[in-house]
Simulated assay, not measured.
Amino acid sequence: MENVVEEKRLGKKGFTYYSIKWMVFLAGLFVLATGGAFMIKSAFGSATWDVLHIGLSLRSSWSIGLWVQIVGLLMIGLSCWIDRTKPQVGSFINVILIGIFLNLILGLPIYPSVMAWWESLLFLMSGICILGFGVGMYVSTGLGAGPRDGLTIVLAKKTGLSIRLVRTLLEGTALLLGWLLGGPVAAGTFLSVFLIGPVMQASIGFWRKQLAKLDAPEDVEEPGLRVNG
C-alpha cells in the first residue's frame, strides 16, 4: 500500500515537474528571440550569428527567421552526421520556434522609426541582457541543445580541441561570413560577445535552482499513512 501511494505521488509530481520544464524551455526561446530582435533593431550591431542570418536574408528573398531555421537545421544535421547520433526533439523545436518568434517580434509595431543614440544603446543593452537570460532559461532545462551548442561539443570531442576554442572559431566564421554578405557588424556585436556569457551563466544558475526546488522530495502525509515518520 505504501509503495502504491508513493508511486502515485511521484507520478503526479513528475508530470508537474516536466510540464514546468517545458514551459520554461518554450518561454526561454521566446525571451531569447526577443533579445535578438532588440539587438537587430538597435542598429548598434546584432549578435554574432544574427549577422550571418541578416546577411543571408539581404542576399535572398527569405526572412531572417527562416534563415535562422535553415542554418540551425543544417548544423543539427551536421552534428548528428559527425557524431552518428539522433537529435533531440527539443533541438528541432528550438530552431523552428526561434525563427518563428524572431519574425513575429521583429514585425511588431513597437520600435521607434527613428532612434536617438541613447535609445539605440538602450535597445542594444536590453537585447543583450534579455537574450542571455533567455538562453539560460532553455539551457537549464536540458530538453534540447541549440544547434551551435551541439555542434561545438561534437567538434570538440572529435578534434580534441577545447570547447572554448571550437566555439570561438565557429563564432568567428559566422561573423566573417555574415559581414561578407552585408550583415550589420558594429560595436554592439563585439560587446555582446563579452556580455552575453555572464548573463547566460547567471540565468542558468538561477533557473537550475528553481527547477531543483521543484524536483526536491517532499514530506507528504497521506490520510491514514505517515511518510518519513
Rank of each mutant, 00 (worst) to 15 (best):
L106T: 00
P109M: 06
I96Q: 09
V139P: 03
S162Y: 03
D83Q: 10
W179S: 14
F92N: 08
I130H: 02
V154F: 03
T85V: 13
S140T: 06
L180P: 01
M115W: 08
S79Q: 14
T141W: 00
E119S: 12
Y111R: 04
I130F: 07
L143W: 01
T152I: 12
L122E: 01
F133D: 04
P112H: 11
G132C: 13
S120C: 11
R164H: 12
T173D: 02
Y138S: 06
L108D: 02
W118K: 09
L121T: 13
M115D: 06
R167W: 04
V166R: 00
G144L: 04
I128S: 04
D83S: 10
W179D: 09
V114Q: 15
A174H: 09
I93S: 09
S162A: 09
F101Y: 15
L176Q: 03
Q88I: 02
M125S: 15
K157H: 14
G182C: 02
C80K: 05
F101P: 07
I96H: 07
E171K: 05
A145L: 12
L161M: 14
L165H: 10
G77T: 03
L155P: 07
E171N: 11
G90E: 04
S91A: 12
G178C: 07
I82G: 00
G178V: 05
E119N: 09
I163V: 15
D149P: 05
N94K: 02
L122M: 14
L151G: 02
G142M: 08
T152A: 10
G77N: 06
Y111F: 15
I96N: 07
L108V: 06
V166L: 01
F123D: 00
L175A: 10
P109S: 03
L155C: 04
P109V: 02
I82N: 02
L122P: 08
F92V: 14
F92C: 13
L104C: 13
G99Q: 03
M115L: 11
I130W: 07
D83G: 00
G172H: 09
N103M: 12
N94F: 09
L104Y: 14
C80F: 02
I76G: 01
M137I: 06
Q88N: 12
T152L: 14
C80W: 02
F92S: 08
E119A: 13
V95G: 07
S126F: 14
L177Q: 04
W81N: 04
S140G: 12
R164E: 12
G142N: 04
L169I: 15
L143P: 09
G136H: 05
A116S: 15
G182P: 06
S79M: 09
L131I: 05
G178P: 02
A174P: 10
T168D: 11
T141E: 07
L106Y: 07
C129M: 15
L177V: 15
A174V: 12
F92E: 04
G136Y: 05
S126N: 10
K157N: 15
L161E: 10
L131T: 06
V135A: 13
S120I: 10
V135W: 03
L124R: 06
S91D: 01
L102I: 14
